[in-house]
């Protein structure tokens, strides 16, 4: 028992010396493994405003019409007006309302980047079957929503090149957090 105890003390002492000798930033534990490119690609689903992360594929408003009717309309409404009882938000309308007493936040009135629409549908929609749409279907339904919001034309094709260029109505509507905004300092 006594011998074991002594050994423990010695080991712990060596470890401390080892850690102290190495600069903290150089110390690596090297736990874990290196993920394969496939492993990363499988879950790397984000899309950024400049288009990084957008996958191959494409879709048009016309192609998105049926997808919307089948997968989205139950909660977001036939006319994209939202369905309160289902908890689905309105997707269009309200343009120019932000900051008025009738503020209405929709993809059309509030969302600053088209990439966010693609990204969100890809990761979380449809609500009852999240992640079930193909990339083509996501481009198409995004095109349908953007078209219904009068942001893109009827014939516009959405893909990895065109989507980042969509000019969202509220793209300049966001500012960095300026807080503290009440200055009662002591």
């Amino acid at each position: 028992m006594l011998i074991h105890w002594s050994k423990t003390v010695i080991l712990a002492g060596s470890l401390v010396a080892f850690i102290a000798a190495a600069p903290a930033s150089a110390q690596k534990f090297n736990f874990g493994t290196t993920p394969s490119a496939e492993e990363i690609a499988k879950i790397d689903i984000d899309a950024m405003p400049d288009g990084r992360g957008l996958p191959p594929g494409s879709g048009t408003p016309a192609m998105g019409k049926n997808i919307y009717a089948n997968s989205c309309a139950a909660c977001h409404g036939v006319n994209l007006e939202g369905v309160s009882a289902a908890g689905g938000a309105a997707l269009v309308g309200g343009r120019g309302s932000i900051g008025t007493p009738k503020t209405k936040k929709t993809v059309e009135s509030y969302w600053p980047y088209a990439s966010t629409l693609f990204d969100y549908v890809r990761r979380a929609m449809p609500f009852d079957k999240p992640g079930s749409l193909s990339n083509d279907e996501i481009y198409a339904v995004s095109a349908y929503i953007l078209n219904k919001g009068k942001i893109i034309g009827d014939k516009d094709v959405m893909n990895a090149k065109t989507l980042p260029k969509v000019d969202m109505p509220n793209k300049d509507g966001f500012i960095p957090d300026p807080r503290p905004d009440v200055f009662n300092y002591r």
């Binding site: 008025t100 503020t103 993809v107 509030y110 969302w111 980047y113 966001f174 500012i175 957090d177 807080r179």
Partner: peptide, 26 residues
């Protein structure tokens, strides 16, 4: 750069007086 996901654009942003929305109000 920030990824501008739904939860930092359409949600969790605070619309203030001038109609602008404060973003990344952490």
């Amino acid at each position: 750069k920030p990824f501008m996901t739904r939860e930092e654009t359409s949600k969790y942003t605070d619309v203030v007086k001038d109609g602008k929305a404060r973003q990344f109000s952490f």
